[in-house]
Design a binder for these strands. Sequence first.
DNA 1: CGGTAGTTTGAACAAGGTCAATTGAGGTGG
DNA 2: CCACCTCAATTGACCTTGTTCAAACTACCG
Lengths: 251, 251
Amino acid sequence: MAPLTCATRHATCALPAGSEAGLEVACASCGLDPLCNVLDYAGEQSGVPDGLLLRRRPVARGETLFHYGDPFHSVFAVKQGSVKTYIPRPDRAAQLVGFHLPGELIGAGAMAGESYPYTARALENSRVCEIRLGLLPESGRPLQQIQRAVIELLGREVAFNNELIAALVHQSAEQRVAGFLISLSERLQRRGMPCAEFNLSMSRSDIGNYLGLASETVSRILTRFSKADLIDVRHKRVQLRHPETLAGIAE
Amino acid sequence: MAPLTCATRHATCALPAGSEAGLEVACASCGLDPLCNVLDYAGEQSGVPDGLLLRRRPVARGETLFHYGDPFHSVFAVKQGSVKTYIPRPDRAAQLVGFHLPGELIGAGAMAGESYPYTARALENSRVCEIRLGLLPESGRPLQQIQRAVIELLGREVAFNNELIAALVHQSAEQRVAGFLISLSERLQRRGMPCAEFNLSMSRSDIGNYLGLASETVSRILTRFSKADLIDVRHKRVQLRHPETLAGIAE
DNA sequence: CGGTAGTTTGAACAAGGTCAATTGAGGTGG
DNA sequence: CCACCTCAATTGACCTTGTTCAAACTACCG
């Protein structure tokens, strides 16, 4: 078997201009990297099924990675573009769970259970890496490292969610939107992507749904920030002019 | 070394009347049970340090199990009574993170990190079991099972938090309070505790803080529910009269 | 060049927060 | 045992915030 390489260790390749969104995250900055490295190692020890790693798979805007309730098989990482996750609800609007930027994981919450607790859908033409954890053998030494990595990932997820809860529950609409922009910017920065100016690939309703606000409120606050010269919004393009002030608003 | 027994496999022992709150959860119903069982096994294989399990440790009302930022050493489970976790914040009121009922874990979110992300304080005179995971050797076969159990626990935590976020962000004050009561009741039931009538060991402000509401709003809604004969509130005692209707309100 | 869906903006309204006064419970000391 | 103190809980009045409903506007796409 050919030695496996990390799912995301590849330079950007040429693609039809305009068909894909933004830059690609470097492997070293990707949240999947620890797992990728472990699997590299596992590969050389053999015992890891082939086809375990699917790298830089293109996903068209609107396409889904998996649906709510599907049996768990893979953890995904966004390589390029963006993905939203949501819980479809009968006779109600879907509940938005999260937005996933380059370098971020999708489906981590399902690793412990049998099925995905939400649907994942691409917000734009994107690329994702996929690790088919479902194919992993249940024994052998590498498993320990894999488990360790999974624990690490889940722990981060828990911490992030705890912060999010604290934030969402107690903040005003203005604070939430400011915090949302700052969060996006910081997450892009962490992955080495341009973070002062970026795309709001999700709709205002998606943002509102995520933050627990009406889309009109989101819109109003964005223009308010814009008039205060804190940001510059044009269509889906946002530029942060005074991130410090925004961060101050978000507290 | 004497064989270790599960941290929580013990009958209730006699105690000064009135000094402790409520019944004790059975070990089989405890969230720590999977870990306890694994460690039992580990003990017989040797290699597990002594003093790893501290069982049914009494904790006085107001006493803390650990503080925000303390280095991680143990996972706790409430055996009897209740505990709240919160993030202390400079020049602001603390942010309540969660309430922990008998059978529930505390500090699971810290297992992946180095330090506790919140402070844990007993709401009443309670008893907790403690597993000093920090003392675990980093190798040996049982580690795999321990890791598996940890992943399981973290996964549940993530799932619970996702639901919580969805709930808190989109629900009205009335829905939140109804959902809070139902959640308490269901969690008590899951652990085999009386669930139709129970103690609200936390203050109205704690509830409000947790749900993102003013304490006055919590109070108003409780009396509203009481007048509608959905519940009976007297001091800290609550009786659910029409759980189904409440569940309907919470949606 | 329309058509459609997302976005912006305005005005009326409702939910919940804030402030303040009152009541009630538990604890302490005389 | 009771008076008193303190703090939590309740209740009322008012006001801010954000939602809802509706209409105009804009980008995007055939």
